[in-house]
Each structure stands twice: as structure tokens, then as C-alpha cells.
Design a protein around this nucleic acid. Structure first.
Lengths: 353, 353
DNA sequence: CCGTCTATTGATAACGTTCTCATTCATATC
DNA sequence: GATATGAATGAGAACGTTATCAATAGACGG
């Protein structure tokens, strides 16, 4: 099994154009201080020969690898995928990021890592050593794992933390969780609801807290009480059942519930059905995520879209531009929107008003 | 911007173990003719230092790149993704292939290519020149595009053609389309149906023809006529509407319809609704694909699952093992299964029987 | 017209690995 | 015991690109 050779190398181009390797390299990388005529001549040879630089060689020579690595949680990704109940992060990131990366001559590679294992560092370290990516996109819950962010910072690799606002190395990015939660709350308030329950997600994710904050603030702005209207789940369906039941068991049960995930919203829908409550007549529901599933329920759920694809695309851009522009000081917010469907309705007129 | 250095290289390991670079390389690649004691000593140094080979350097030196490239149709992928109505090929392939590749120390990279453009060769050629993948997975409709298969064959890169049975270079792989179509047909025959209509997919894909063949054969085996029970669509929803209407306009309208895609099945469901036909009482439906959408329709659709993930996983294995085992002579079939849900029912008893 | 500076180009080393070939040493064969 | 065979190890070249530094040429000020 002999050496496998590149068909057209920079050498061939240099020979064809009658210049040095270095000059060709300069043209490829769009470096300054190349005379226009020279540039044109070299470019002509490149086009004629159909030359494309080998990214392996480019990486070897010590500059860029043209690879962006995306880190996702293994268990969660596989679970989402097995469930086949909608798009997962990997899927959204792939398409959102891939196209943007491709435009800039970069490629995306995915790596699944277990957050809870003690070989996080080894797994991630191995991926980095093997690939030497120019940038890394880290998704929750990894984005707030100091083992991971620490490793990346130490190796000096630019990275984006999605779902993290903390200061420190790396680009902090969020999808505007408070704003979204407030948007949903305001929407329900406008419909006349005053008792709006909230099912929070797992504590492990800071964004769970931000969403609660957004809801609290919107409630406070409208001078509505939100004590005793909060339950906590873990984003999964089962936990949603428990939380929804708890909320509806309250003396003053909410007339509307915001769930921090589609799965928990589906569970809420289930609980409503189980108690003979009509959605949206008796109970309004709004959820986070907007995975495809929620279009097919009866009624279709109004949901806060998580712009994962757009966020990934933005992250890729920011990472690529890091060498030129550095990293943004402030957290970068890629805001999602409220997709209105049929699950909320005007609040039932109360006897006490 | 200085050279970026690998933290631990083969050199460090060699120094630590007191052996030559070459011996370390042999241990890494599990080559024969290394004394067990030596192997152990080197491995200990590797573990101690946490050494991981740079794939860029490995590629440079002429052997493997440890990259598998997956080629998908750009328009179709983006359309599927925008529609958000279920999983697409890329998504399934990513997870199916990624995990398998990771187990073997390989990575998958995706590339979207326009089939219909005249720069197919340039786009694909550029990706290959840049990445130098050890294997390529080609999906329909690319898998039967001679420009693409020709290019890959010429460059001597192992590749798998998914959805292609043709002889020629590369590994031919199918998901058992005839078998699946026959399975669906038999299922409906068992339920007493005799007039089973079939909506074929676009001519551009050979698998459209295979599915028709499977249906025809199953009908023939049961001595049922299938003349005048075939319509052709393009896999899309709109074309399904036209085809379903045409079938149901027949003098002897079918009591069951098999659609070559979920989208066309959804369209058939729509047409049934539009004509006041109850599904499954008046009309049975079975579809191909089994994307997540079909679980949420009323009734949920019985569908033939396309095992894209499993196929991608198998393709990755076959490609990696190509250097050792060569390529299979016969097409490799990764068969899907019939997922029974609620859209078919026993045939309505006919006046003439 | 000379010296200085800067823009442009080139030559060579370096990156981290494997390939090729050479060398050593032990074992089997005659 | 000499020789052929093969296993185990090592030395150095090679892969394709960019970083570094040197060289050249032209521009500009005096």
C-alpha cells in the first residue's frame, strides 16, 4: 500500500505559473503584497489545473486546520435520536453550521461526549489532539462544564459556549431564554390569564433558571403573583407529567402553563386530557423548543422556537473570525420567536371578577 | 501567528520509551513484528503521556486520513430540513455512521452537492482533494450519477452507492426495496384487499422501479391484476395528491394504496378526507420511509421503515474494511421492516363476492 | 546620484507521521 | 558449522503546505 499522492499540488501550480511555492501560497491565502498581475497569473494556473489545497498539509504546516468541532452530549443525542420524536441539536447544528462553514471553506465534525463520565477530558482531549480544530462549539450541558471549558482555554482553541452567559474564556451565546419566557408570559397575559404556571427544566442547565427569571419578571411587570405556580422537571416527558399534575392540583390551579420543553408540554397535554380539561378552552399551554412533534398534536402547540441552527451558524462565523476580530465581550444572543398555534386561548372568565 | 504545535508527539513517546519513532508508529497501528514486551513498554509511554496521533500528519505521510465523506443532495437536504417534517437522510446518516466511525477511530464529514449542476465534478473533486477521505458514501440520486461514481473510481477512493444495484466500481447497497414493497402488498392481501394501488416515486431513482417490481410480483403471486393500479409521483406531497386522485377516480378504485413516500401517503390521506372516505375503513394506506410525521397523523400510518442509519453504519464498516477485505461482489442489502400502525384495515366486503 | 526604506518574491526549514530500506540478531536448514 | 531465512528494530526520506528569513527591485528623500 504505497503512498497516496495528491494529484495536483502547489508544486505543480508553481511550476505552471513559473513562480515559487511561497507565492502560490500567498495567493491561496489571499495575503497582501502580491502584485495584481502576479496574482492573476497564479490564479489562472490554479484554475487551469484544478488545484485545491490539502487541509492535512495546511494543518501540518502549522496554521489552520479548517475544521470546526461540535461537542454534544452523547446520551442525550442518542436518546433524542432513538425517540424519533423530532429534531435534535445535532441535526439542527449540522445543517445550520455546515452551510456556513462550507461558505468559508471550513468543515464541521461532530463529537459525542459523556458529560458525566470522568474521562471527559480524555475524550475531548483526544478529539482535539487528533483533529486540531480551529474552533469548537460546545452545547449544554457541556458548555458550563469547567473541565471542558478549562481544557479548551488551556489549549488556546477558540470556542463558543452555547447556553452559557458566564464570563471567562470562550464566546458566550444564548438564545435569549429570559426574553422568550417573557414573550410567552406576556402573550398569555394579553389573553387575560392571571394564574400562569411554569414548569422549569433541569437545574443542571443554567438556561432553566433564566427561563424562570423571564417568567417571574413578566409576571411582576403585570403585577401578578407567581408564588406557588412553579414546578421543576428535567425536560423529559415523565417529569412533565408529575409537574403538570402538581400544578393542576393547586387550590388555585393555573389557567395556563408554560413548559420548558416540548416533551413536558406534551405531558401537560396528556394530564389535561386525563382530567377532562379541554385544551385550550380550559387550559392554555405554551412550550419551549418547537420540535416538529408539536405541529401534530391536537391542538397544535404554540411554542417558543429555539433557533439552534441559526445559533450554530453564528457560532461558526464568530469562531472563524476570531483570529481577525477576537471574541465578543458580551454574550451573543440569537433570539428565538414565539410560533403561535392553537394551544393557548383567552382565559376562562372567572367567577371572582 | 506562530506555528501551532502538537503538545505530545510521537517523538516524545519515542524518547520516553527509549525506542525509535518507527517502533512507536508500529505500535499505534497495531502492526505485526513487534515483541510483546516492546509493545507493552511503548503502550505504557503512550498512556502515560496521553499521546494521540495527529490525523493531519497521518494523512500527510500517505496512508489513511481517517475521514469518511458522505455526499448528499443539497437541494433535497435543505428542503427536508426547512420543512421540519421529519428526519432527513443527513440526520439519520450522521448518527448511524458517526457512532460506527468513532468506534473505529474514524470521523464522518458531510458534503452537500447539487446533482443537477454541471460543477458536480468540481465540487466533489474539491472536497476530495481537500480532505482525501478514506471512503465516500454516496446517497441517491448521486449514487447513480456516472459523473460522481466515475470520479471516485478514477481516484481510487473506496465508495458505497446507497440505493444502487448496478455493477461497477464501489459497493452497491440497497434497503431491500422490492422486498419491502412485497411485504406491504402481502400485508394488504392478507387483509383481504384485491385492488391495491401503487404510487411510484420519481423515475430519477432506480429504487422507484424496484418498489414497483416488488408490488407487481407480490400481486402476481396472489394472482391479482395490477394493470391500471399504478400512478407515478415525485415523492413530494403535491404529486401525491394528483396520483391519489387519479387512482381513486378509476372505475374500479383501489381499496388500498401503497405510496412510495410518507409525503405522498399524507397526500393520499388528504385526498381520502376530501372525498369523505374513512381511513382505514374505506381506504387502507401504507407508506415508505417511516419519518416521524406518520406517527402523528390520524390514523397513524403503517409504514415501511427505511433503515438509513443502519445502512450508513454498515457502509462505514465496509469502507473501513475495504483495504483488508476488498469490496463485496453482490449488492449489500440492509432490509427495513414494516411498522404496523393504524392506516390499513380489513378490506370492505365487496358486493361481488 | 546615492542611500534608505518598503514592496515583492524566493529559498529553506519545519510540521508529525509513515514508507522504504538497511541492519541486527535469532532460528531453521543443509 | 555455514548459510539462508525471517523477525525485530532503526535511520532517513517523503508527504504538501506555511513560517521565517533573506534577497531583490523599485520608490523616495536628500
Amino acid at each position: 500500500m504505497g503512498r497516496r499522492r495528491q494529484s495536483v499540488t502547489i508544486k505543480h501550480v508553481a511550476a505552471d505559473a513559473g513562480v515559487s511555492l511561497q507565492t502560490v501560497s500567498r495567493v491561496i491565502n489571499n495575503e497582501p503584497n502580491v502584485r495584481p498581475a502576479m496574482k492573476e497569473r497564479v490564479q489562472a494556473s490554479i484554475d487551469k489545473l484544478g488545484y485545491v489545497p490539502s487541509i492535512a498539509a495546511q494543518r501540518m504546516s502549522g496554521s489552520r486546520s479548517y475544521l470546526i468541532l461540535a461537542i454534544n452530549d452523547r446520551d442525550r443525542t442518542i436518546a433524542d435520536w432513538r425517540a424519533r420524536d423530532g429534531r435534535d441539536w445535532v441535526d439542527q447544528m449540522l445543517l445550520g453550521g455546515m452551510l456556513t462553514a462550507a461558505e468559508r471553506g471550513y468543515r464541521m465534525i461532530f463529537e459525542l461526549v459523556d458529560t458525566h463520565s470522568d474521562h471527559v477530558e480524555r475524550e475531548l482531549g483526544a478529539a482535539i489532539a487528533a483533529l486540531q480544530p480551529d474552533g469548537v462549539i460546545v452545547t449544554p450541558p457541556h458548555s458550563e462544564n469547567p473541565q471542558i471549558t478549562g481544557l479548551l482555554a488551556e489549549r488556546g482553541i477558540p470556542f463558543a459556549r452555547i447556553g452559557s452567559k458566564a464570563e471567562g474564556p470562550g464566546i458566550a451565546m444564548t438564545m435569549g431564554d429570559e426574553l422568550l419566557a417573557a414573550k410567552a408570559t406576556d402573550h398569555l397575559i394579553e389573553l387575560g390569564h392571571t394564574r400562569i404556571g411554569f414548569i422549569a427544566g433541569s437545574d443542571e442547565y443554567s438556561l432553566s433558571g433564566w427561563r424562570v427569571d423571564g417568567w417571574r419578571e413578566a409576571m411582576a411587570n403585570a403585577e401578578l403573583a407567581c408564588d406557588d405556580l412553579l414546578e421543576r422537571g428535567d425536560f423529559g416527558f415523565e417529569s412533565g407529567l408529575v409537574a403538570a399534575r402538581a400544578l393542576l392540583d393547586r387550590e388555585a390551579a393555573p389557567t395556563a402553563i408554560i413548559a420548558s420543553s416540548d416533551q413536558m408540554a406534551l405531558a401537560t397535554l396528556e394530564v389535561a386530557k386525563e382530567r377532562g380539561l379541554d385544551v385550550p378552552r380550559d387550559l392554555s399551554i405554551v412550550s419551549f423548543d418547537n420540535t416538529p412533534v408539536v405541529r401534530f398534536t391536537t391542538p397544535a402547540l404554540t411554542a417558543l422556537d429555539q433557533p439552534i441552527a441559526r445559533t450554530a451558524a453564528r457560532a461558526v462565523e464568530l469562531l472563524i473570525d476570531t483570529r481577525k476580530n477576537g471574541t465578543p465581550e458580551q454574550p451573543v444572543v440569537v433570539e428565538g420567536e414565539l410560533v403561535v398555534r392553537g394551544s393557548p386561548a383567552r382565559a376562562p372568565s372567572r367567577s371572582s371578577s
